[in-house]
Design a protein around this nucleic acid. Structure first.
Length: 509
RNA sequence: CGGGGUGUAGCUCAGCUUGGCAGAGCGCUUCGUUCGGGACGAAGAGGUCGCAGGUUCAAAUCCUGUCACCCCGACCA
């Protein structure tokens, strides 16, 4: 019998462990389509919870949902040079609108049905939404224009991994237009904070927020802001971004308005997005060698009841007890939704059933059999404890305490992730130590090593490029406030030139 | 896209060097014994060996091409 439900363990082979967690939890699988995944019900339910929560936050900050076309005329994409440069090499292109039977019996694009102008499957929607904005915005009274869209996008990635990077992925993209620069910058930072709040308080992911360096920012943006949690292999994940686009896109697409002073001006725009990648981050930050661990506030089910009926005199009575317990729990509010309960009545072995739910990451498992029924009790196992560690509780007490227990687990996950990150985050004062920090002892099969390094940098992109080349380490962000509390100026550890503040370095996904 | 690796039953893989009836374990189905726990016995179902060509009396095995997946890199949410 394996000691852990997942083979290999994180320490043995982290990338393989990740894949096995996704599979064991039955969240997603790869599909016949290159780089594209099938998101299975358990994974999609998690996405729906992420979606629902974020959507509420977007609406609470004044945004409205809309939907724009999947296809973007090639000419639209060509309007903003830097933007095209950034995406051109990873676009799926539609060139025909009909198939005909080919000479070998297969189907081929009909040469007669070639499009005059190819359509690009959206890698992001700045251009197509900007086009709409240019028609929707006439007066300063039309501003701010605050739009969000939930959509799929396609980026023809060369190397994909379930949830973390797939050719097609689901996301939301907020697009806003404002009358002034100040207002647009404020929006950019406000939405970054919405994301950070979501990451920390819902996903239980401690993050470091800050600005991207010139080399790392979104093509076409003036400033890109990001928030970065640490995964359990100590790499950073760019969990989402918020861009201040200045007037770059407004100028490219003539998003103009007549201001109160009678002058015709270009709008200031922003865009911001998070994707199904969040699920990958959630998995890699919290899961253990027994599989997925879900933060209760986003879990598709909070409680799973496992009826033990095989030796009951009257199995139906046990089931009735389970159903009444479930009904009682489902009355309870938990952070904006009801407690969600699964009752697993499948006729499979109890041990298998139990482990299946462990691997799916359900916060609380309740074994309920004749003995519990007789005592008016439940037998509880928590996903944040070892699988065998179980506790009998009076039913009324459990019902009273369940939301508090879930909150405790949610907080515990955040605290654990934060302790892990802090343990592997350090200030580094010289180049030699920096290189040592990011170099594995075993170069053949690198062990989990490194982490987050805070080090002074002069701002020279060539220096950053050299570090990336040598170590695969990049500047994740220029933090707003130093996570280790030292915001003072210093000298670049690579060049000795002046540095306004320390920046965050790490390997990343 | 560069380097490396892998494609054989639902899953993990053996068989390939030296061509000769397609295999194992797990999982699945049925029956029985178990069982507050990832059990045991018995009997079954399940594969055009990634795909397309070629060599051969004969190809999972040899040759050519191609596709997909995994790892490392470059690129990126």
């Amino acid at each position: 019998m394996a000691k852990t439900a997942i083979t290999p363990t994180r320490a043995e082979n982290y990338p393989e462990w990740y894949q096995q967690v996704v599979r064991a939890a039955d969240m997603a699988e790869s599909s016949p389509v290159r780089g594209c995944m099938v998101i299975k019900p358990w994974g999609y339910a998690l996405w729906e919870n992420i979606q629902r929560t974020l959507d509420g936050k977007f609406k609470a900050t004044g945004h409205r949902n809309a939907y724009f076309p999947l296809f973007i005329p090639k000419s639209f994409l060509e309007k903003e040079a830097k933007h095209v440069e950034g995406f051109a090499k990873e676009c799926a292109v539609v060139t025909h609108h009909r198939l005909i039977e080919g000479p070998d019996g297969g189907l081929i694009p009909d040469p007669e049905a070639k499009l005059d102008e190819p359509l690009i499957v959206r890698p992001t929607s700045e251009m197509i939404i900007g086009d709409a904005f240019s028609r929707w915005v006439e007066s300063y009274r039309d501003l701010p224009l605050l739009i969000n869209q939930w959509a799929n996008v396609v980026r023809w990635e060369l190397r994909t991994r379930l949830f973390l990077r797939t050719s097609e992925f689901l996301w939301q993209e907020g697009h806003t237009a404002h009358a002034t620069k100040e207002e647009a910058v404020e929006e950019t930072l406000k939405m970054l904070d919405v994301y950070v709040d979501f990451a920390e308080n819902w996903m239980a992911l401690p993050v470091i927020k800050g600005k991207k360096s010139e080399g790392e920012k979104f093509p076409g943006a003036v400033d890109t802001y990001t928030f970065e949690p640490m995964m359990q292999d100590r790499k950073a994940l760019q969990a989402g971004t918020s861009h201040f686009l200045g007037q770059n896109f407004a100028k490219a697409q003539e998003i103009m308005f007549l201001d109160a002073d009678g002058e015709r001006k270009h709008a200031w725009t922003t865009s911001w997005g998070v994707s199904t990648r969040l699920i990958g981050g959630l998995i890699m930050a919290h899961s253990d060698d027994d599989g997925l661990v879900l933060p209760p506030k986003l879990a598709p089910a909070h409680v799973v009841i496992l009826p033990i009926t095989f030796k009951a005199d009257d199995p139906q009575k046990v089931l009735d007890y389970c159903h009444s317990l479930a009904a009682e729990l489902r009355q309870l509010d938990y952070h904006g939704r009801r407690i969600e309960v699964e009752i697993d009545t499948r006729d499979i072995r109890g041990g298998d059933k139990n482990w299946e739910w462990v691997k799916k990451g359900v916060p609380i498992r309740l074994e309920v059999g004749p003995r519990d029924m007789a005592d008016n009790a439940v037998f509880m196992a928590r996903r944040d404890k070892t699988p065998k560690e179980k506790q009998s509780l009076p039913r009324t007490q459990f019902v009273e305490q369940v939301t508090a227990i879930l909150d405790e687990m949610q907080q515990g996950m955040f605290d654990r992730a934060k302790a892990f990150r802090d343990e592997h985050m350090r200030a580094i004062k010289d180049k030699e130590k920096f290189y040592k920090f990011f170099t594995p002892k075993n170069t053949e099969q690198p062990e989990i090593h490194g982490g987050f390094a805070l080090a002074h940098w002069c701002g020279d992109e060539e220096v950053a490029a050299q570090v990336q080349k040598d170590l695969g380490v990049t500047i994740r962000c220029i933090p707003f406030t130093d996570p280790l509390g030292d915001d003072s100026e210093g000298r670049c550890i690579f060049t000795g030139k002046p540095s306004p503040r320390r920046v965050l370095w790490a390997k990343s996904y």
